[in-house]
């Protein structure tokens, strides 16, 4: 399998892996978002959804394993590519300039690190339930009350909104980028493809952000 090894160490191979794992992680985000939006349908809907997720432990752990694998691979290849890129320009320019690269594309590492920190906090907050004694005391599937309790605290709501901004930026470059990396490119569709990234990325982030925002502002009680 030396060719696999060689391909994964090559600049394009590593990026193909980032694109593929990025698709998996974005797919997860869309599923997660669809589940979350049930909060607008009331406590019954989201709590039974949360309970339903755990009905098939084998499937749940399979999905979690796949997700964790994709996550670690995405980080590992990102580290490989970033380190190689830093090494490729040992002497920086005295006058730095940017012609057309977007802010999002130049700060993928920053937004990625914000997301990583957020994911750890988010798991501690709602999955392990160790950050807030009031949440720890709630029943495992009372997601509705956990969300209400969490997002009524301004610092928590702010942290979530900040993380959603990072997700929106990261995805807006990442999604547009994966088409280019996988070579899915044709003059007929290129304009649309460059549009898809920001629309889907910012769309996902805004929908996610609508939950802490509407709880904090009191639209969901």
């Amino acid at each position: 399998m030396s060719w696999v090894n060689r391909a994964l160490k090559s600049p394009i191979g590593a990026k193909v892996m980032m694109a593929v794992t990025g698709i998996m992680l974005t797919g997860f985000l869309i599923g997660h978002l669809a589940g979350n939006l049930l909060i607008f349908a009331g406590p019954e809907a989201i709590n039974s959804y949360a309970e339903g997720l755990r009905k098939f432990p084998a499937l749940l752990w399979l999905a979690r394993g796949g997700l964790l694998g994709a996550f670690i691979a995405h980080l590992a290849f990102a580290a490989q590519v970033t380190l190689a890129n830093r090494a490729a320009r040992p002497e920086p320019y005295a006058f730095n300039n940017t012609v057309q690269a977007t802010w999002a594309s130049r700060h993928m590492v920053l937004t990625g690190c914000v997301m990583l920190a957020f994911i750890v906090f988010h798991l501690a907050h709602f999955t392990w339930r160790v950050t807030d004694p009031q949440i720890s005391a709630m029943g495992e599937f009372d997601v509705y009350q956990m969300a209400l309790r969490g997002f009524r605290q301004p610092p928590v709501a702010m942290a979530y909104l900040l993380a959603m901004a990072a997700i929106g930026l990261h995805l807006s470059h990442g999604i547009a980028s994966l088409f280019q990396t996988l070579g899915l490119n044709h003059p007929r569709y290129n304009r649309g493809v460059r549009f898809i990234g920001p629309v889907v990325g910012v769309g996902i982030a805004l929908l996610f952000a609508s939950i802490p925002l509407s709880i904090y502002l009191g639209y969901v009680n």
């Binding site: 990026k15 590519v81 280019q180």
Partner: peptide
């Protein structure tokens, strides 16, 4: 280094080579 799809290259190319060729290369 590796391409991170920022397209600074095509912006400065004196011969206006499009980054679409990078997709083709991939």
């Amino acid at each position: 280094g590796n391409c991170t799809n920022q397209y600074e290259c095509e912006a400065v190319c004196p011969k206006q080579i499009s980054s679409d060729y990078i997709a083709r290369l991939n």
